[in-house]
């Protein structure tokens, strides 16, 4: 399929991904509610996925999207396990505060 090239410079796409990643990281670091931590993690995953797709588009091959599919799989698995943990945590503690889970301190 003929293509007119990328719509934007590659650097702008990368910058977008970096900003999204840092926002997600900030969320992971600041939120105490496990649900919000999970959502922030999703943001970070999306930033990485975006970089893959962008790279695939830059080189015009399917590998980038294959990686995206794998990240999608990973995200699905991660969310399933993490939500199971959320449910279990809430059942035991009546709270989603991850700072209360410091039973492993040395």
């Amino acid at each position: 399929m003929e293509s007119p090239g990328l719509v934007i410079p590659v650097e702008h796409g990368l910058l977008f991904a970096a900003v999204l990643f840092c926002i997600g990281l900030a969320g992971v670091l600041t939120r105490r509610n496990l649900l919000f931590v999970l959502m922030s993690l999703e943001l970070m995953l999306n930033a990485v996925a975006f970089v893959f797709v962008l790279a695939g588009a830059v080189h015009g091959n399917a590998d980038g999207q294959v990686m995206f599919v794998l990240i999608l799989t990973l995200a699905a698995a991660e969310v399933a396990i993490a939500l199971a943990l959320v449910v279990q945590l809430y059942r035991r503690r009546r709270s989603l505060d991850i700072d209360s889970l410091d039973g492993m301190r040395g």
């Binding site: 399929m1 003929e2 293509s3 090239g5 990328l6 410079p9 590659v10 650097e11 990368l14 910058l15 695939g56 588009a57 830059v58 080189h59 015009g60 091959n61 399917a62 590998d63 980038g64 999207q65 294959v66 599919v69």
Partner: peptide
């Protein structure tokens, strides 16, 4: 930012190509 990647051979990749890969 200073990466300045060449994007000359950029092309749309459709579902068929992804499926084959």
């Amino acid at each position: 930012l200073p990466a300045a990647l060449a994007s000359g051979d950029a092309a749309a990749v459709d579902a068929v190509a992804v499926g084959r890969a």
